[in-house]
Design a binder for these strands. Sequence first.
DNA 1: TACCTTTGTAAGTGAATACTTACTTACATA
DNA 2: TATGTAAGTAAGTATTCACTTACAAAGGTA
Lengths: 197, 197
Amino acid sequence: MENKEFTDRQIEIMEAATLRIDKCGIQELTIKNLAADLNLSEAALYRHFKSKNEILLGLLTYFILEMNDRIAKMLGDKEQHPSEQLRLIFTSQLNTFVKKPAIVSVIFSEGIFQFNKELLDKVSEMMALMQTNIGSIVSAGQNNGVYAKLLGKDAITTIIMGSMRMVVLKWKLSGNKSNLVNDGKSVLTGILKMLEK
Amino acid sequence: MENKEFTDRQIEIMEAATLRIDKCGIQELTIKNLAADLNLSEAALYRHFKSKNEILLGLLTYFILEMNDRIAKMLGDKEQHPSEQLRLIFTSQLNTFVKKPAIVSVIFSEGIFQFNKELLDKVSEMMALMQTNIGSIVSAGQNNGVYAKLLGKDAITTIIMGSMRMVVLKWKLSGNKSNLVNDGKSVLTGILKMLEK
DNA sequence: TACCTTTGTAAGTGAATACTTACTTACATA
DNA sequence: TATGTAAGTAAGTATTCACTTACAAAGGTA
Protein backbone atom coordinates (compact mmCIF):
# COMPACT_ATOMS: atom_id res chain seq x y z
CA MET A 1 0.00 0.00 0.00
CA GLU A 2 1.13 3.48 -0.84
CA ASN A 3 2.19 5.42 2.21
CA LYS A 4 1.21 8.83 1.09
CA GLU A 5 2.11 11.50 3.57
CA PHE A 6 -0.10 14.39 4.40
CA THR A 7 1.02 17.78 5.66
CA ASP A 8 -0.43 19.15 8.89
CA ARG A 9 -2.51 21.61 6.93
CA GLN A 10 -3.87 18.88 4.70
CA ILE A 11 -4.93 16.88 7.73
CA GLU A 12 -6.58 19.98 9.17
CA ILE A 13 -8.50 20.41 5.95
CA MET A 14 -9.53 16.77 5.77
CA GLU A 15 -10.72 16.84 9.35
CA ALA A 16 -12.75 19.96 8.73
CA ALA A 17 -14.23 18.30 5.65
CA THR A 18 -15.14 15.23 7.68
CA LEU A 19 -16.83 17.36 10.30
CA ARG A 20 -18.78 19.32 7.73
CA ILE A 21 -19.99 16.13 6.03
CA ASP A 22 -21.10 14.72 9.33
CA LYS A 23 -22.85 17.90 10.40
CA CYS A 24 -24.65 18.75 7.19
CA GLY A 25 -24.30 15.96 4.67
CA ILE A 26 -21.96 15.49 1.79
CA GLN A 27 -23.73 17.95 -0.48
CA GLU A 28 -22.93 20.66 2.04
CA LEU A 29 -19.24 20.03 1.56
CA THR A 30 -18.40 22.94 -0.69
CA ILE A 31 -15.13 24.76 -1.07
CA LYS A 32 -16.82 27.89 0.22
CA ASN A 33 -18.14 26.22 3.38
CA LEU A 34 -14.93 24.39 3.99
CA ALA A 35 -12.87 27.56 3.63
CA ALA A 36 -15.20 29.37 6.03
CA ASP A 37 -14.94 26.55 8.58
CA LEU A 38 -11.17 26.89 8.48
CA ASN A 39 -11.16 30.70 8.38
CA LEU A 40 -9.36 30.57 5.07
CA SER A 41 -10.08 31.88 1.63
CA GLU A 42 -11.32 29.44 -0.97
CA ALA A 43 -8.19 29.91 -3.00
CA ALA A 44 -6.04 28.94 -0.01
CA LEU A 45 -7.48 25.42 -0.11
CA TYR A 46 -6.08 25.03 -3.59
CA ARG A 47 -2.60 25.55 -2.19
CA HIS A 48 -3.01 22.23 -0.39
CA PHE A 49 -5.26 20.16 -2.65
CA LYS A 50 -5.48 20.43 -6.39
CA SER A 51 -9.23 19.80 -6.40
CA LYS A 52 -12.18 19.09 -4.17
CA ASN A 53 -12.07 15.51 -5.34
CA GLU A 54 -8.54 15.19 -4.01
CA ILE A 55 -9.78 16.23 -0.59
CA LEU A 56 -12.35 13.44 -0.54
CA LEU A 57 -9.83 11.01 -1.94
CA GLY A 58 -7.32 12.03 0.72
CA LEU A 59 -9.94 11.59 3.37
CA LEU A 60 -10.63 8.02 2.33
CA THR A 61 -6.95 7.22 1.94
CA TYR A 62 -6.29 8.62 5.39
CA PHE A 63 -9.02 6.46 6.92
CA ILE A 64 -7.89 3.34 5.07
CA LEU A 65 -4.33 3.83 6.31
CA GLU A 66 -5.55 4.21 9.87
CA MET A 67 -7.89 1.22 9.59
CA ASN A 68 -5.14 -0.92 8.13
CA ASP A 69 -2.80 -0.11 10.99
CA ARG A 70 -5.42 -0.63 13.62
CA ILE A 71 -6.53 -4.02 12.29
CA ALA A 72 -3.03 -5.26 11.56
CA LYS A 73 -2.04 -4.53 15.15
CA MET A 74 -5.03 -6.47 16.44
CA LEU A 75 -4.42 -9.52 14.33
CA GLY A 76 -0.84 -9.87 15.49
CA ASP A 77 -1.74 -12.72 17.82
CA LYS A 78 -2.50 -15.61 15.48
CA GLU A 79 -3.28 -17.95 18.36
CA GLN A 80 -6.48 -16.21 19.28
CA HIS A 81 -9.88 -17.79 18.74
CA PRO A 82 -11.31 -16.61 15.39
CA SER A 83 -14.50 -15.40 17.04
CA GLU A 84 -12.40 -13.36 19.41
CA GLN A 85 -10.51 -11.88 16.47
CA LEU A 86 -13.75 -10.95 14.73
CA ARG A 87 -15.11 -9.42 17.90
CA LEU A 88 -11.93 -7.39 18.28
CA ILE A 89 -12.05 -6.11 14.72
CA PHE A 90 -15.65 -5.01 14.84
CA THR A 91 -15.52 -3.58 18.33
CA SER A 92 -12.59 -1.47 17.27
CA GLN A 93 -14.28 -0.49 14.03
CA LEU A 94 -17.55 0.47 15.70
CA ASN A 95 -15.76 2.39 18.41
CA THR A 96 -13.94 4.35 15.74
CA PHE A 97 -17.29 5.19 14.16
CA VAL A 98 -18.69 6.39 17.48
CA LYS A 99 -15.66 8.56 18.06
CA LYS A 100 -15.68 9.96 14.52
CA PRO A 101 -19.21 9.52 13.18
CA ALA A 102 -18.38 11.64 10.18
CA ILE A 103 -16.32 8.96 8.53
CA VAL A 104 -19.41 6.78 8.31
CA SER A 105 -21.12 9.40 6.20
CA VAL A 106 -18.25 9.18 3.76
CA ILE A 107 -17.82 5.42 3.75
CA PHE A 108 -21.52 4.85 3.34
CA SER A 109 -21.69 7.21 0.40
CA GLU A 110 -20.79 4.66 -2.23
CA GLY A 111 -24.10 5.56 -3.82
CA ILE A 112 -22.79 9.04 -4.47
CA PHE A 113 -19.42 7.84 -5.66
CA GLN A 114 -20.90 5.31 -8.04
CA PHE A 115 -20.01 7.45 -10.99
CA ASN A 116 -16.75 8.88 -9.82
CA LYS A 117 -14.22 6.20 -10.62
CA GLU A 118 -11.45 7.29 -8.28
CA LEU A 119 -13.70 7.64 -5.26
CA LEU A 120 -15.57 4.45 -6.02
CA ASP A 121 -12.25 2.62 -6.29
CA LYS A 122 -11.24 3.85 -2.86
CA VAL A 123 -14.49 2.67 -1.30
CA SER A 124 -14.18 -0.66 -3.11
CA GLU A 125 -10.59 -0.96 -1.91
CA MET A 126 -11.72 -0.56 1.66
CA MET A 127 -14.49 -3.12 1.31
CA ALA A 128 -12.09 -5.56 -0.32
CA LEU A 129 -9.67 -5.06 2.54
CA MET A 130 -12.31 -5.92 5.11
CA GLN A 131 -13.47 -8.84 3.00
CA THR A 132 -9.94 -10.24 2.92
CA ASN A 133 -9.44 -9.85 6.65
CA ILE A 134 -12.78 -11.35 7.66
CA GLY A 135 -12.54 -14.03 5.00
CA SER A 136 -9.18 -15.31 6.20
CA ILE A 137 -10.32 -15.45 9.81
CA VAL A 138 -13.45 -17.35 8.85
CA SER A 139 -11.44 -19.68 6.66
CA ALA A 140 -8.98 -20.39 9.46
CA GLY A 141 -11.89 -21.05 11.80
CA GLN A 142 -13.36 -23.54 9.38
CA ASN A 143 -10.07 -25.34 8.92
CA ASN A 144 -9.57 -25.54 12.69
CA GLY A 145 -13.00 -27.07 12.97
CA VAL A 146 -14.29 -24.12 15.00
CA TYR A 147 -16.85 -23.10 12.38
CA ALA A 148 -19.20 -25.34 10.46
CA LYS A 149 -18.55 -25.80 6.77
CA LEU A 150 -22.24 -25.74 5.96
CA LEU A 151 -21.69 -22.34 4.34
CA GLY A 152 -18.75 -21.26 2.24
CA LYS A 153 -16.26 -18.69 3.44
CA ASP A 154 -17.56 -16.04 1.07
CA ALA A 155 -21.19 -16.43 2.07
CA ILE A 156 -20.27 -16.18 5.73
CA THR A 157 -18.15 -13.12 5.09
CA THR A 158 -21.00 -11.48 3.21
CA ILE A 159 -23.36 -12.23 6.08
CA ILE A 160 -21.02 -10.84 8.71
CA MET A 161 -20.12 -7.69 6.81
CA GLY A 162 -23.68 -7.09 5.67
CA SER A 163 -25.08 -7.49 9.16
CA MET A 164 -22.52 -5.14 10.62
CA ARG A 165 -23.23 -2.58 7.95
CA MET A 166 -26.93 -2.87 8.67
CA VAL A 167 -26.31 -2.19 12.35
CA VAL A 168 -24.34 0.91 11.41
CA LEU A 169 -27.03 2.03 8.98
CA LYS A 170 -29.70 1.70 11.66
CA TRP A 171 -27.52 3.71 13.99
CA LYS A 172 -27.17 6.42 11.36
CA LEU A 173 -30.90 6.46 10.67
CA SER A 174 -31.58 6.73 14.40
CA GLY A 175 -29.53 9.93 14.41
CA ASN A 176 -26.67 8.14 16.21
CA LYS A 177 -28.98 7.60 19.16
CA SER A 178 -28.92 3.82 19.30
CA ASN A 179 -26.00 2.11 21.01
CA LEU A 180 -23.86 1.15 18.07
CA VAL A 181 -21.22 -0.85 19.93
CA ASN A 182 -23.72 -2.88 21.94
CA ASP A 183 -26.03 -3.57 19.02
CA GLY A 184 -23.08 -4.59 16.88
CA LYS A 185 -21.72 -6.91 19.57
CA SER A 186 -25.06 -8.58 20.03
CA VAL A 187 -25.64 -9.19 16.32
CA LEU A 188 -22.10 -10.46 15.81
CA THR A 189 -22.39 -12.76 18.80
CA GLY A 190 -25.60 -14.11 17.31
CA ILE A 191 -23.96 -14.89 14.01
CA LEU A 192 -21.01 -16.54 15.71
CA LYS A 193 -23.31 -18.67 17.87
CA MET A 194 -24.94 -19.98 14.71
CA LEU A 195 -21.60 -20.54 13.04
CA GLU A 196 -19.83 -22.33 15.84
CA LYS A 197 -20.32 -26.02 15.70
CA MET B 1 -50.22 -1.90 -10.83
CA GLU B 2 -52.89 0.74 -11.08
CA ASN B 3 -53.02 3.73 -8.84
CA LYS B 4 -54.75 7.04 -8.71
CA GLU B 5 -51.87 8.82 -7.11
CA PHE B 6 -49.93 9.65 -10.24
CA THR B 7 -50.87 10.83 -13.71
CA ASP B 8 -49.48 9.07 -16.75
CA ARG B 9 -47.18 11.99 -17.41
CA GLN B 10 -45.90 11.93 -13.86
CA ILE B 11 -45.10 8.26 -14.22
CA GLU B 12 -43.31 8.97 -17.48
CA ILE B 13 -41.24 11.60 -15.74
CA MET B 14 -40.45 9.38 -12.79
CA GLU B 15 -39.40 6.59 -15.09
CA ALA B 16 -37.14 8.89 -17.05
CA ALA B 17 -35.67 10.10 -13.76
CA THR B 18 -35.06 6.53 -12.69
CA LEU B 19 -33.30 5.75 -15.94
CA ARG B 20 -31.13 8.83 -15.73
CA ILE B 21 -30.10 8.04 -12.15
CA ASP B 22 -29.22 4.51 -13.11
CA LYS B 23 -27.25 5.55 -16.15
CA CYS B 24 -25.31 8.45 -14.72
CA GLY B 25 -25.78 8.64 -10.97
CA ILE B 26 -28.06 10.74 -8.87
CA GLN B 27 -26.05 13.93 -9.25
CA GLU B 28 -26.69 13.76 -12.98
CA LEU B 29 -30.41 14.00 -12.34
CA THR B 30 -30.95 17.65 -13.18
CA ILE B 31 -34.08 19.32 -14.42
CA LYS B 32 -32.24 20.18 -17.60
CA ASN B 33 -31.14 16.61 -18.30
CA LEU B 34 -34.48 15.20 -17.36
CA ALA B 35 -36.31 17.61 -19.65
CA ALA B 36 -33.94 16.75 -22.48
CA ASP B 37 -34.47 13.02 -21.94
CA LEU B 38 -38.21 13.57 -22.24
CA ASN B 39 -37.96 16.04 -25.12
CA LEU B 40 -39.68 18.61 -22.98
CA SER B 41 -38.80 22.07 -21.78
CA GLU B 42 -37.64 22.47 -18.22
CA ALA B 43 -40.67 24.52 -17.41
CA ALA B 44 -42.94 21.73 -18.58
CA LEU B 45 -41.70 19.51 -15.76
CA TYR B 46 -43.00 22.05 -13.29
CA ARG B 47 -46.50 21.52 -14.68
CA HIS B 48 -46.34 18.02 -13.24
CA PHE B 49 -44.17 18.30 -10.15
CA LYS B 50 -43.79 21.33 -8.00
CA SER B 51 -40.08 20.69 -7.41
CA LYS B 52 -37.27 18.31 -8.20
CA ASN B 53 -37.58 16.97 -4.69
CA GLU B 54 -41.17 16.01 -5.37
CA ILE B 55 -39.99 13.94 -8.30
CA LEU B 56 -37.63 11.94 -6.11
CA LEU B 57 -40.25 11.68 -3.42
CA GLY B 58 -42.77 10.45 -5.98
CA LEU B 59 -40.30 7.93 -7.25
CA LEU B 60 -39.84 6.42 -3.81
CA THR B 61 -43.56 6.49 -3.09
CA TYR B 62 -44.22 4.77 -6.38
CA PHE B 63 -41.72 2.04 -5.60
CA ILE B 64 -43.04 1.55 -2.08
CA LEU B 65 -46.58 1.18 -3.40
CA GLU B 66 -45.46 -1.38 -5.93
CA MET B 67 -43.38 -3.25 -3.38
CA ASN B 68 -46.24 -3.28 -0.91
CA ASP B 69 -48.59 -4.77 -3.46
CA ARG B 70 -46.10 -7.31 -4.64
CA ILE B 71 -45.22 -8.54 -1.17
CA ALA B 72 -48.77 -8.52 0.12
CA LYS B 73 -49.82 -10.71 -2.79
CA MET B 74 -47.06 -13.17 -2.06
CA LEU B 75 -47.80 -13.46 1.63
CA GLY B 76 -51.44 -14.32 1.01
CA ASP B 77 -50.81 -17.98 1.68
CA LYS B 78 -50.25 -18.09 5.42
CA GLU B 79 -49.74 -21.83 5.38
CA GLN B 80 -46.43 -21.65 3.57
CA HIS B 81 -43.17 -22.50 5.26
CA PRO B 82 -41.56 -19.30 6.58
CA SER B 83 -38.34 -20.03 4.73
CA GLU B 84 -40.33 -20.36 1.54
CA GLN B 85 -42.01 -17.02 2.25
CA LEU B 86 -38.66 -15.35 2.80
CA ARG B 87 -37.28 -16.88 -0.37
CA LEU B 88 -40.30 -15.62 -2.29
CA ILE B 89 -39.96 -12.09 -0.95
CA PHE B 90 -36.29 -11.77 -1.73
CA THR B 91 -36.42 -13.50 -5.07
CA SER B 92 -39.15 -11.10 -6.11
CA GLN B 93 -37.27 -8.13 -4.68
CA LEU B 94 -34.00 -9.02 -6.37
CA ASN B 95 -35.73 -9.72 -9.66
CA THR B 96 -37.29 -6.28 -9.48
CA PHE B 97 -33.84 -4.80 -8.96
CA VAL B 98 -32.46 -6.65 -11.98
CA LYS B 99 -35.34 -5.44 -14.11
CA LYS B 100 -35.08 -1.86 -12.85
CA PRO B 101 -31.57 -1.41 -11.50
CA ALA B 102 -32.11 2.32 -11.17
CA ILE B 103 -34.29 1.99 -8.12
CA VAL B 104 -31.33 0.52 -6.27
CA SER B 105 -29.34 3.68 -6.90
CA VAL B 106 -32.10 5.64 -5.22
CA ILE B 107 -32.69 3.28 -2.33
CA PHE B 108 -28.99 3.04 -1.61
CA SER B 109 -28.67 6.80 -1.54
CA GLU B 110 -29.76 7.23 2.04
CA GLY B 111 -26.37 8.86 2.54
CA ILE B 112 -27.45 11.67 0.26
CA PHE B 113 -30.86 11.97 1.82
CA GLN B 114 -29.50 12.04 5.34
CA PHE B 115 -30.16 15.72 5.57
CA ASN B 116 -33.33 15.92 3.56
CA LYS B 117 -36.00 14.99 6.04
CA GLU B 118 -38.75 14.07 3.58
CA LEU B 119 -36.57 11.83 1.46
CA LEU B 120 -34.90 10.24 4.47
CA ASP B 121 -38.33 9.51 5.91
CA LYS B 122 -39.35 7.73 2.73
CA VAL B 123 -36.27 5.53 2.75
CA SER B 124 -36.77 4.84 6.44
CA GLU B 125 -40.40 3.99 5.78
CA MET B 126 -39.38 1.42 3.22
CA MET B 127 -36.81 -0.15 5.48
CA ALA B 128 -39.32 -0.27 8.32
CA LEU B 129 -41.81 -1.96 6.02
CA MET B 130 -39.34 -4.67 5.11
CA GLN B 131 -38.34 -5.03 8.73
CA THR B 132 -41.97 -5.59 9.73
CA ASN B 133 -42.57 -8.14 7.01
CA ILE B 134 -39.41 -10.13 7.63
CA GLY B 135 -39.77 -9.81 11.38
CA SER B 136 -43.26 -11.29 11.46
CA ILE B 137 -42.25 -14.20 9.27
CA VAL B 138 -39.26 -14.94 11.47
CA SER B 139 -41.37 -14.60 14.57
CA ALA B 140 -43.98 -17.01 13.21
CA GLY B 141 -41.21 -19.43 12.32
CA GLN B 142 -39.86 -19.31 15.82
CA ASN B 143 -43.26 -19.87 17.37
CA ASN B 144 -43.91 -22.82 15.09
CA GLY B 145 -40.62 -24.26 16.18
CA VAL B 146 -39.17 -24.03 12.69
CA TYR B 147 -36.45 -21.57 13.70
CA ALA B 148 -34.24 -21.74 16.73
CA LYS B 149 -34.78 -19.15 19.45
CA LEU B 150 -31.08 -18.79 20.04
CA LEU B 151 -31.27 -15.33 18.47
CA GLY B 152 -34.01 -12.78 18.89
CA LYS B 153 -36.36 -11.87 16.07
CA ASP B 154 -34.77 -8.44 15.63
CA ALA B 155 -31.23 -9.75 15.42
CA ILE B 156 -32.26 -12.32 12.82
CA THR B 157 -34.09 -9.68 10.82
CA THR B 158 -31.05 -7.42 10.91
CA ILE B 159 -28.87 -10.28 9.72
CA ILE B 160 -31.18 -11.21 6.86
CA MET B 161 -31.75 -7.67 5.66
CA GLY B 162 -28.12 -6.70 6.07
CA SER B 163 -26.89 -9.73 4.18
CA MET B 164 -29.31 -9.13 1.35
CA ARG B 165 -28.30 -5.49 1.14
CA MET B 166 -24.66 -6.53 1.02
CA VAL B 167 -25.37 -8.86 -1.89
CA VAL B 168 -27.06 -6.00 -3.71
CA LEU B 169 -24.19 -3.63 -2.90
CA LYS B 170 -21.66 -6.09 -4.28
CA TRP B 171 -23.76 -6.41 -7.39
CA LYS B 172 -23.79 -2.64 -7.78
CA LEU B 173 -20.05 -2.39 -7.23
CA SER B 174 -19.50 -5.11 -9.84
CA GLY B 175 -21.31 -2.90 -12.32
CA ASN B 176 -24.35 -5.20 -12.23
CA LYS B 177 -22.22 -7.96 -13.67
CA SER B 178 -22.56 -10.52 -10.89
CA ASN B 179 -25.67 -12.68 -10.78
CA LEU B 180 -27.76 -10.89 -8.21
CA VAL B 181 -30.61 -13.38 -7.98
CA ASN B 182 -28.36 -16.42 -7.65
CA ASP B 183 -26.01 -14.80 -5.16
CA GLY B 184 -28.96 -13.62 -3.11
CA LYS B 185 -30.56 -17.04 -3.11
CA SER B 186 -27.40 -18.74 -2.01
CA VAL B 187 -26.73 -16.35 0.86
CA LEU B 188 -30.34 -16.48 2.03
CA THR B 189 -30.35 -20.27 1.85
CA GLY B 190 -27.19 -20.25 3.96
CA ILE B 191 -28.77 -18.10 6.63
CA LEU B 192 -31.91 -20.23 6.69
CA LYS B 193 -29.87 -23.41 6.99
CA MET B 194 -28.24 -21.99 10.08
CA LEU B 195 -31.54 -20.80 11.47
CA GLU B 196 -33.56 -23.94 10.95
CA LYS B 197 -33.39 -26.27 13.89
C1' DT C 1 20.37 43.62 0.74
C1' DA C 2 18.32 40.73 -2.78
C1' DC C 3 15.83 36.78 -3.92
C1' DC C 4 13.03 32.56 -3.51
C1' DT C 5 9.51 29.74 -1.63
C1' DT C 6 5.46 29.08 0.93
C1' DT C 7 1.12 30.44 2.16
C1' DG C 8 -2.10 33.45 1.93
C1' DT C 9 -5.96 36.89 -0.22
C1' DA C 10 -9.51 39.78 -3.11
C1' DA C 11 -11.87 39.55 -6.86
C1' DG C 12 -12.97 37.51 -10.21
C1' DT C 13 -14.41 33.47 -14.14
C1' DG C 14 -17.77 30.63 -16.83
C1' DA C 15 -20.74 27.08 -16.20
C1' DA C 16 -24.32 25.03 -13.88
C1' DT C 17 -28.24 24.92 -10.83
C1' DA C 18 -33.47 24.92 -9.57
C1' DC C 19 -37.00 27.50 -10.57
C1' DT C 20 -40.18 31.56 -12.72
C1' DT C 21 -42.53 34.49 -15.89
C1' DA C 22 -45.27 35.67 -19.63
C1' DC C 23 -47.13 33.86 -23.25
C1' DT C 24 -49.15 30.07 -26.56
C1' DT C 25 -51.57 26.09 -28.20
C1' DA C 26 -54.76 22.07 -28.36
C1' DC C 27 -58.90 20.50 -27.06
C1' DA C 28 -63.10 19.23 -24.34
C1' DT C 29 -67.40 20.89 -23.31
C1' DA C 30 -71.31 24.34 -22.33
C1' DT D 1 -69.11 28.98 -31.47
C1' DA D 2 -67.12 30.55 -27.15
C1' DT D 3 -64.50 29.67 -23.22
C1' DG D 4 -61.82 27.43 -19.65
C1' DT D 5 -58.11 24.56 -18.78
C1' DA D 6 -54.24 21.39 -19.19
C1' DA D 7 -49.87 21.25 -21.10
C1' DG D 8 -46.57 23.26 -23.46
C1' DT D 9 -42.55 26.96 -24.62
C1' DA D 10 -38.58 30.70 -24.89
C1' DA D 11 -36.17 33.31 -22.26
C1' DG D 12 -35.24 34.61 -18.47
C1' DT D 13 -34.00 34.97 -12.81
C1' DA D 14 -30.82 34.73 -8.81
C1' DT D 15 -27.77 31.87 -6.86
C1' DT D 16 -24.20 28.61 -6.31
C1' DC D 17 -20.52 25.90 -7.88
C1' DA D 18 -15.41 24.59 -8.41
C1' DC D 19 -11.75 26.79 -9.77
C1' DT D 20 -8.27 30.82 -11.43
C1' DT D 21 -5.62 34.98 -11.62
C1' DA D 22 -2.80 38.53 -9.99
C1' DC D 23 -0.80 40.06 -6.29
C1' DA D 24 1.20 40.38 -1.26
C1' DA D 25 3.33 39.28 3.08
C1' DA D 26 6.47 36.46 5.83
C1' DG D 27 10.61 34.05 6.52
C1' DG D 28 14.73 31.55 5.24
C1' DT D 29 18.98 31.77 2.60
C1' DA D 30 22.53 33.73 -0.82
